[in-house]
Amino acid sequence: MTDTLIIALTTMGGLGFIFAGGLAIADKKLRVEENPLIGKINDVLPGANCGACGKAGCYDFAVNIVNGKMKVNGCPVGGEDVANLIAKILGVEAEPAIKQVPRILCRGGNNEAKDKSTNYKGPQSCAVMEIVGGGTKICEFGCLGGGDCIAACQFGALIMNDNNLPEVIEDLCTSCGLCAKACSRNLIEMHPIDRRVFVFCKSNYDPKRSKEVCSAACTGCGICERVSDGGVVVKNNLAEINYDLFYASNFPFDKCKTKAISYLNDKDNTIHKLVVNQ
């Protein structure tokens, strides 16, 4: 009885020692040196693996930073804090980054933009509505209200307001830009958070059709171009702001009849209203 026990113990123990020895040799001979910086940077990243930086995930981003292929402030979700931490690890100076937030450049909600009134009952997704007869609104440039941007946001920073237009909650936004990619009509653009004046329209329709299809459209009348000294240029029936030359304090906003070019007004914001009401 004890013999069997001893034989079993020695064979298993012996095998264990042989394999352990093999592993120990392999550890010495086949060791891959990983830059310890990668691990350190990976630890300070948000770990959401959202892909907003353009890399496969946070670890991939860390590898690319150490190889010098990405900038220190390349993680939009982490923002300034993470950029500073990475800069500290690498021993470099972080460039100051201004938070970028998405801006929805269309104000043609249910109240403004004309509806096709075709009783659409298909999937509520902009990309699908777009191919099923070009959406439910007559305007071919404006927001479809299907909420693809809201579905794309992983941080709950977008909501649909009563007028069927998406709104950004700046405090929750991590600047990842996935909503801008999801918009099938490219209406969402990322802008620095302190930029408050925009042309809230993307329509290239001529003035007559613009007026027909939406009351908030840029008609391309050109008044803004004439009064702004190059701050606004009208191209293809659509005003475009040149932010280097544009001075909001000098611009007569009331000249724009449809309010297509105007301030981003927080007071109209659904979230703002909710906060005030509480």
Binding site: G122, P123, A127, V128, I131, V132
Partner: peptide, 12 residues
């Protein structure tokens, strides 16, 4: 709405 989804998939 099977057809809409399939049409969407084809486009994508």
């Amino acid at each position: 709405p099977l057809v809409q989804w399939i049409a969407f998939g084809k486009k994508k």
